[in-house]
Design a protein around this nucleic acid. Sequence first.
DNA 1: CGAGCCTGTTAGCGGGCGTTAACCGGTGGT
DNA 2: ACCACCGGTTAACGCCCGCTAACAGGCTCG
Lengths: 190, 190
Amino acid sequence: MATPAATPASSRREQILAVAAQLFARHGFHGVSIADLGAAVGISGPALYRHFPGKEALLSELLVGISEHLLAGGQARAARTEDPHELLAALVEFHADFAHREPELIVVQDRDLANLPAPDRRTVRRLQRTYVEIWVDALQRAHPGLPVDAARTAAHGTFGLLNSTPHAGRSPEAAALLRRMALASLRSLS
Amino acid sequence: MATPAATPASSRREQILAVAAQLFARHGFHGVSIADLGAAVGISGPALYRHFPGKEALLSELLVGISEHLLAGGQARAARTEDPHELLAALVEFHADFAHREPELIVVQDRDLANLPAPDRRTVRRLQRTYVEIWVDALQRAHPGLPVDAARTAAHGTFGLLNSTPHAGRSPEAAALLRRMALASLRSLS
DNA sequence: CGAGCCTGTTAGCGGGCGTTAACCGGTGGT
DNA sequence: ACCACCGGTTAACGCCCGCTAACAGGCTCG
């Protein structure tokens, strides 16, 4: 169903994860069967259980991985950058870069959160919340007097803007454009 | 499962559609059963077939309705407003207003498009494309020399920003903030 | 050589869900 | 008074899907 020889060098596990990301992004978690996933990597059906305990575990690993990656990147930037405006620019670039390189993950991320088993969902939400707080903090330092709610709204809005990559071309110019728009919108917080 | 006496004055049909929007937004199309939908309006299970030919028909009506509404609103503004900057402001306000009033529809719109039966999906996509073209046209007139692809990317980015309402508070200030950010990001197209 | 794990296979079970069938009370028009 | 339709009900069918069971081939290591 998807290109079989897509991922160049990867163990079965990673290959399955990659193909799952694509299929989940295209058809949604419930729109993809175990058999579909197997077929997409050239094995068939229940062989997946040799690598993952179940279908939900696939989704968990994808979503936890994404939110951990974002949080780690955000924390790294926050640690190494003092000036809040500079930090915001770094955050925008980091997030835009991720969204540009992995549009399928972006799609799965906020489409299928609800399909996670409850404990993993809590984990992901906690990671996401922490990531958002990095942005909120930077925004409030960059724009003194900005209320928390406003900062949170602005952060989510910026994510929405940058996460529009699935609807945009994959060209570097598109990514650059979105970065510029994001920075401009953040500057407008006065 | 949802508040039963929610919609004040409405025929069964509209009540079902409203509740379907909420449930689809919360759990995804495949995550909601016919029985769930029935229960949420106080009837049980197959009684829905007295009002709709099937589950997919519900989704179709929702999504076609949304895209028709957006297109109609966009066309109305485009018809009555000459100046492209003024038009963009009107479009931003219109879109922001819709996203702010119907966050569930926003969610369903781009989450469950793939679950539409093919003909309706084509219909919705055509309507969406036409709506986007209104924005693209206004953007190109407002920013001479802006390439089409860039305009399209900018339009989708702005949608992403404005459509972040499901993650934002429902306060009017949040909506106003998103509008301001959108306008600022559009101005940055130089 | 042989034991055992690793990674596949196919067959089958069980549950859930969309949909259809068959039935029924109330209401409004002739 | 009756008939027909409208909007419900419950029962049942059939499919699809996640998952388990049972089995098999090849690789490695003692």
